[in-house]
Design a protein around this nucleic acid. Structure first.
Lengths: 332, 332
DNA sequence: CTGAAAGCGCTTACAG
DNA sequence: CTGAAAGCGCTTACAG
């Protein structure tokens, strides 16, 4: 029922190859061009993508592997990737790894098998298997959010994010602080943010910091927050992500602690919800959307065989909102 | 560099067709089966999906068209669809329509062209063009969230949602209420929710309701909330979605109104954030994830040529949380 | 159970 | 500028 290139060729009285050339912008006489233009339009011709890909051995698909579909960061990044790829006439194929490393690796193989032009990966951690599969895939693999010395990447300046936040809260006079981080297996979120924060602390005398660890889940963060409040009564809890901060905010409300006067709280991420809640959450904005757009551009250039910068570090921005008390003013 | 079926055939000393039959579970002798098993494994053979699809004229891809990637409802639905399709050995191809009807229609055509096995569509509104394209596509199209008398659908009981919420807030003694809805072009969210609410109001004497309209955006809702507060000072604002409710909550905070004592607020949706904010938001839970799973099952059955129920209505559940004041108790 | 052959719809050198 | 031919990797009747 769908017209093929042969049908068109027959209707136009030319050879299939001429139609193909016309379709792909090859050299065709003005006359046949006009004729073909009319006929393909009238016949409602649409090329069969499988046949095209089978022959050309490539697609305009970019595979995107996300840890989960329902996270602010993933959604923003996907939106950015999609926008950019669509503008270039391509298409984004999303693979949900469900926060499971095995599925992440499977996804890479599956996408390679489908001959996507490139893969954008948002891993929690880059393992040797990732590198092995990426190499075997034979197509460009670009990392977002985590770096690697073997793969191209777009990353955030997590260290600076931690530093900015650390300096800011110290400026505000906080000296008894809990840092609620995540596993150091996560280089970006677990190590770098914490290291940046720790550096700020080192620059300042007489500051006491208590380090804790949570998963990325709001509910888990909330439980640990309860323990923190019991164990060390800080004036401030610095949380490694906005979601963790939300869990801590929840715990504070349940304990009847007023934010920021009885407990200050900060996050990292710049999720939309941080501006919605009351008080608004002081955090560091990460340019997820921009990272997605950039990643899409880079992976497309890699797919085209172009040279591309090895690693791009995107800048972050401190968002001073309402959830941090200024202890200097108070003590005046 | 990738092995083909011919390579395998040659290595095994059999014909290509035998290899193909083995791969597709056709009748092969135990002996050749074992041989082929070993050889395909050792050679790391992976079939070329394009060649398969070209020949078989079908894929195991299900296209999903979402209005946006970064919404709670869309994310939950996609996660459900993905989980179910993956379990069945298929794959989900996501298309982001960016809340643009034109792009939604284009996406349908594009997916049809790619010979996906079926399309799951989450439209804001079903137009005649949708129906025309769906028919021309020649593949099953299933709607989620909006019904139609021409297409299969999975919908929510929006009318009952409105009714449950209406009855509940009236029970709590509210008699001066603002309803902040959305355009009636949206049959489900705009018309049905409001109609259910209006029915509850009709069952109750002496209740005054002021109807307003907003877009789906938090910022817009916030602006309209300001107007509502000035114009009619209700004890309660019923919002057509949780996001709209968040905008109203924000406006209340800015005006220094305490929730729920000075202003009660409700939403619809059951977004995760409603349990995070303080006070928690009274809302109606919509089973987005379950809808996604069901939609995936149904569209796959349709793709297999099976008979499927025309429309499935999923039930909703009132979540009584903290954002509605009980005026009865107070007046005692 | 197995093989030879045709063909899915397209692209790409190669002649002319 | 145009056409005939080969081939991408697979599946599917059809014989045997």
């Amino acid at each position: 029922m769908n017209k093929t290139i042969s049908d068109i060729a027959q209707m136009a009285g030319v050879a299939k190859s001429t139609v193909s050339r016309y379709l792909n912008g090859g050299s065709v006489s003005v006359k046949t061009k006009q004729k073909l233009e009319r006929i393909t339009r009238e016949a409602g011709y649409v090329p069969n993508t499988f046949a095209q890909s089978l022959k050309a051995k490539r697609t305009n698909l970019i595979g995107t592997i996300v840890p989960r579909l329902d996270s602010f960061a993933a959604a923003q990044t996907m939106t950015g990737i999609d926008e950019e790829i669509r503008a270039a006439g391509g298409q984004m194929l999303i693979y949900n790894a469900g926060q499971d490393r095995e599925r992440e690796l499977e996804a890479m193989q599956e996408l390679a098998r489908q001959k996507v032009a490139g893969i954008i990966l948002m891993p929690a951690r880059v393992t040797p298997e990732h590198l092995r599969i990426a190499e075997a895939a034979g197509i460009p693999v670009l990392l977002v959010g985590q770096g690697s010395d073997k793969l191209h990447s777009v990353i955030y300046d997590d260290h600076r994010a931690g530093l900015l936040m650390g300096r800011y809260v110290l400026e505000q006079g906080h000296r008894r602080i809990a840092y609620l981080g995540v596993t150091e297996e996560d280089e970006a979120v677990g190590r770098q943010r914490k290291a940046g924060f720790a550096q700020a602390v080192q620059e300042c005398a007489g500051c006491e910091v208590f380090y804790y660890e949570s998963s990325f889940k709001i509910a888990d963060a909330r439980l640990i927050a309860e323990r923190i409040l019991e164990e060390c009564s800080p004036t401030l809890i610095v949380c490694a992500t906005d979601n963790i901060a939300l869990g801590v905010v929840k715990a504070a409300h349940i304990h009847g602690l007023s934010i920021p006067h009885e407990l200050s709280i900060t996050g990292f991420g710049g999720y939309e919800v941080t501006e919605i809640i009351h008080p608004t959450l002081t955090t560091v904005r990460f340019p997820y959307f921009e990272a997605g757009k950039l990643a899409a551009r880079l992976v497309q250039r890699l797919a085209a065989g172009e040279e591309v910068e090895w690693q791009t570090i995107l800048d972050v921005e401190l968002l001073r909102q309402e959830s941090v008390d200024n202890l200097n003013i108070r003590s005046l």
